[in-house]
Amino acid sequence: MKKILLILPLFLLTTICLFFLLFILLKKDPNDPPSALLNKSIPIFSSTNLYNDSEFLESNNLKGQYILINFFASWCAPCRVEHHLFFEIKKQKPELYIIGFSHKDDPNNSKKYLEEEGNPYSFVGLDQDGKIAFEFGVFGLPETFLINNKGKIIFKHTGILTKEIIDNEISKLF
């Protein structure tokens, strides 16, 4: 009994280290958490058009087409880095409806940002209070979601998109 008590800490240590080792070797990245919403319907939201106060986008009206949703902001430096890629996606898949949500941003700054970087979005919605991002479980900016024609979220990516991600992951999904 006494021996067991003395061995127990060593045993615990080995087990814990083993899990850490597996965690590192399996290349789990804590900065890229899977969304709880993956394979679920998109949350209900309503958003105003950045350029036109009286035009609304309702989540109910979005079914029946593939949609790419991108959360961006003028204060988000990494967003600028990935921004040009949306033009490429648009070129590859002209039928894709791309929504950009200006997240917790001043509308004027967003407009300026889109003037400087160009506007690849089919619709730019306002998410000034961050409510829509909250509904989507956004982890950090930039974050991108792909929604299929049944209104289900089938892909999400936190952080800067790359050409590889678009070619290897997004394009294969539809």
């Binding site: 003395l6 061995i7 800490p9 060593l10 240590l13 080995t14 280290c17």
Partner: peptide, 12 residues
């Protein structure tokens, strides 16, 4: 692992 393991082993 080495430090703690060494410590616990000596302890054992």
């Amino acid at each position: 692992f080495v430090t703690t393991g060494f410590g616990l082993l000596v302890f054992l």
